[in-house]
Design a protein around this nucleic acid. Sequence first.
DNA 1: CCATCGCATTGACCTTTGTCAAAGGCGCGG
DNA 2: CCGCGCCTTTGACAAAGGTCAATGCGATGG
Lengths: 253, 253
Amino acid sequence: MDMQFDLAQSARRESPAANSCPASARVSACAQCQVRSHAICADLDGAELDALNRTGRRVSLRAGQTVMWEGDDSTIVANVIEGTLKLSTSTGDGREQIVGVVYPSDFIGRPFGARTPHSVTALTDARLCLFPRGAFDGFAREHPQLEHRLLQRTLDDLDRTRAWMLLLGRKTAREKVASFLIDMTRRLDPDGEGVQIDLPLSRQQMADILGLTIETVSRQMTEMKRLGIIELAGRRGVCILDEDRLEAMAEAA
Amino acid sequence: MDMQFDLAQSARRESPAANSCPASARVSACAQCQVRSHAICADLDGAELDALNRTGRRVSLRAGQTVMWEGDDSTIVANVIEGTLKLSTSTGDGREQIVGVVYPSDFIGRPFGARTPHSVTALTDARLCLFPRGAFDGFAREHPQLEHRLLQRTLDDLDRTRAWMLLLGRKTAREKVASFLIDMTRRLDPDGEGVQIDLPLSRQQMADILGLTIETVSRQMTEMKRLGIIELAGRRGVCILDEDRLEAMAEAA
DNA sequence: CCATCGCATTGACCTTTGTCAAAGGCGCGG
DNA sequence: CCGCGCCTTTGACAAAGGTCAATGCGATGG
């Protein structure tokens, strides 16, 4: 965690401009963008894309780097092009809660607001399409299509977040871990059963998502392995052996 | 809780049209609306307001009535004119988590989505300005001003909801109750210290917000009273005697 | 004004999860 | 390929909060 913080600070010092492309390359950046059809810019036309693009730049992040800090002025927003990042808040005495995990094509940052409500940190190496918040806000206000997609995305986020509150407030450790594994499997391996997935999170990060301690997460995983519901492979690998029983476990202890 | 459910069902049967005004009265309804300047319709002009209004109607609710159910098709959205309502989800076996509490000028329902992600139930008698979702969606798409306000509101909701996740996942019972009291006091009595406020919630509902049991909430309140931090008056009355100590308590046990 | 009903409080006890500590093993760098 | 560091697992114990049960009390209606 100390290391993570150091990395984060160095990321900040390097400045986000580090990996931006030369102006000539920018124009076509969107054309070859892997997430364009899913990101909020999906239904902008060529000229609009070009205009938005002129205010933005591509940025690469190493795992552990923090893009923005809880409580900071909200100065940047971004689309995630590649990688996985966590959104987190903490109490004064350092207890952390991960309030969201974002994937390629997701949008991060706080448009139309003065403060960043939570920190954003890369869990894996990642690439972002970054915009100054002010410029983005202005552009968005002039392009209802963009605002509409942002609204849809925000409404979806809110639904997911509220569903997660049920997990945090009312589920047991067992149910929490099972729910988490199902959620992750759905995200990372749409085909389901039998296939091994690689969690983009450490045990500590799983604990920070589920509102548990690392020991409790570990014990629950071990117990599920013992029951033949999952198989563990190394630190990050998990294989769902019995999806049905796992799902039952996610709903009632 | 059974009673609440019965009331809710009867509300549904009575149909939401019960308290709508005659067409002649509708036109002027917005002019005298108490929440207009704070609701999402704030910056619509007269003609727009009129158009939107033609699709909507005013509805009165009794405490305990449920306006929409988790999982139902999303058919209505509404502005809260008066009263307090809860948003809630539950597990298959009946454990409930309140995922939001809404006040006058807040917006409820799920626009641009097929499903209602959580139930909405009146905690006090309440009045809504109700719209069919389809009509509202259509109107919103044609009025970027409205969508923009809805976006702002949704972004704020998301920030608040994520902040609440920290409470659910990482705070102790003591901290949860203290945080809740501070939050409520801020909402209901902007002047602060020394004044008695009336909670719009029962102990069970407080427990459902905080992810605790009714007994734990009760014990924490009693303990705070014993410490001279709050005073309790009847079932719903609370008086903050020492706001500073309460705030300290909300951050670290 | 009093009886009653339902919410709230209190108490005793138990389960779950957290804490602290030690050992194991994965994976990186030498 | 080996050793070391860090993450993870495991264990023993403590504590917070949940459960079950009984009592208290505020508000409603007769």
